[in-house]
Amino acid sequence: MTETKPLILCAPEPRSLDLIFTPEALAELHARYDLREVDGERLGDLGDATLAAARYVLGQPPISSDVLARMTSLRAVLNVESNLIDNMPYEEVFARGIHVLTTGAVFALPVAEIALGFALDLARGISAADADFQRGNEQWGGDGNAASRLLSGAEVGIIGFGDLGRALNRLLAGFRCKVKVFDPWLPPSILRDHQVAPATLDEVLGTSDFVFVMAAVTAENRAFLGADEFAKMRPGAAFLLLSRADVVDFDALMASVASGHIVAASDVFPQEPLPADHPVRRLRGFLRSAHRAGALDVAFKQMGDMVLEDMALMDRELPPLRCKRAERETARRMRSRPVDRN
């Protein structure tokens, strides 16, 4: 008699199975599991038998208490978008021992690398000098370095020390930077274990040549970086936003750059795509990137590998180890907007 394969309900939007799995990994997925692609917004319309049989949900579609109660075999929700979403009764999920897992760690190194690139660009005026060259306004030799500085040995501040912040800190090691970190969710001993100095937000802002923002949006920190915070930064310091735009008062950020007080770079914006007439597009001293820092195919494919390995562990009644587990105390506090494109 043919053994019934475990059922996975697949709603990975905005990702797709072809995006996050290599052909070999996708073949393995099909060989091990029964895959059912579903409309995530209509999970409750599935029959009781289908919901009761589902062992995993790939994606994080809305799951009501009623639907969750019908999913009697559910072991894990595997979020492949990377932002925890407030669309399920987390307390009930955790009470039943169901894992909520995210694959966002795959983006840490790509984001850290582009953050380093932004910092070097702002420090040495690379893209600005190229634009001047194209217009025939280039300045040769030392004349083109009036505002240049070294990243090596610089005072660096990191706001948020999760996967992104830690990956950046590893890359900065070769530059011998003096790194201070503000992260109210971490005890000082953990920061010291990573050879960074715990600091207050004011200390990070006021003593850093480069400030990297890697903090996720939570219920407590929307727009917590505003005009007062930018005013505390050193004149000419660089502000680099890599996580989510909602942690910043973006108008205040633009005003600080426009005044010449700081320079900035951002991979994220209050609206995405950004309107064609948005003033940040014309703002000198502001380096722009279209939310592409982590969106590398190699990162997407790592998601599939992580999912396969963790499901294999859970199939053996072992805890998942590759994906990041949502915590009871913080899951509902996350407020980062989900992405709607890859």
Rank of each mutant, 00 (worst) to 15 (best):
M1W: 10
T2F: 12
T4H: 08
R15T: 09
S16W: 11
E28K: 10
H30R: 13
A31G: 13
R36Q: 13
R36W: 07
R42D: 12
L43F: 09
L43E: 03
G44Q: 07
D45M: 12
D45W: 06
D48A: 11
A52S: 10
A52D: 03
A53T: 02
A54F: 08
A54P: 05
Y56R: 00
L58Y: 05
Q60I: 12
P61R: 00
P62R: 00
S65A: 15
L68W: 04
L68M: 06
A69Y: 06
S73F: 08
L74H: 00
S82T: 14
D86M: 09
M88C: 07
E92K: 10
E92Q: 14
E92F: 07
A95C: 08
A95E: 13
I98T: 02
I98A: 00
L109N: 09
V111M: 12
A115M: 13
A119I: 05
L120C: 08
L122I: 09
A123L: 10
A131Y: 03
G136A: 06
G141A: 11
S148K: 02
R149Q: 11
L150K: 09
A154D: 07
E155L: 07
V156R: 01
I158A: 03
R166K: 14
N169F: 09
C177H: 01
K178Q: 15
V179P: 01
P184R: 00
P187L: 07
S189D: 15
D193A: 15
D193P: 05
V196F: 03
A197S: 15
A199C: 10
E203W: 02
V204M: 04
T207C: 05
S208E: 08
V211G: 01
A215E: 06
A215K: 01
E220T: 14
L225H: 00
L225W: 05
G236C: 10
A237Q: 02
A237L: 07
A238M: 13
A238F: 09
L241S: 03
R244D: 04
M254C: 15
V257N: 01
A258E: 14
A258W: 05
S259H: 07
S259A: 15
S259G: 13
A264S: 07
F269W: 12
E272N: 03
P275Y: 05
R282G: 12
G285K: 00
F286A: 09
F286R: 02
R288V: 14
L296N: 04
V298C: 10
G304W: 04
G304F: 09
V307P: 02
V307D: 01
E309F: 13
E309M: 14
E309D: 15
D310G: 07
D310W: 04
M311E: 02
A312E: 12
M314F: 03
R316F: 04
C323K: 04
T330S: 09
R332N: 13
R333K: 14
M334E: 13
R335E: 11
S336I: 06
D340H: 15
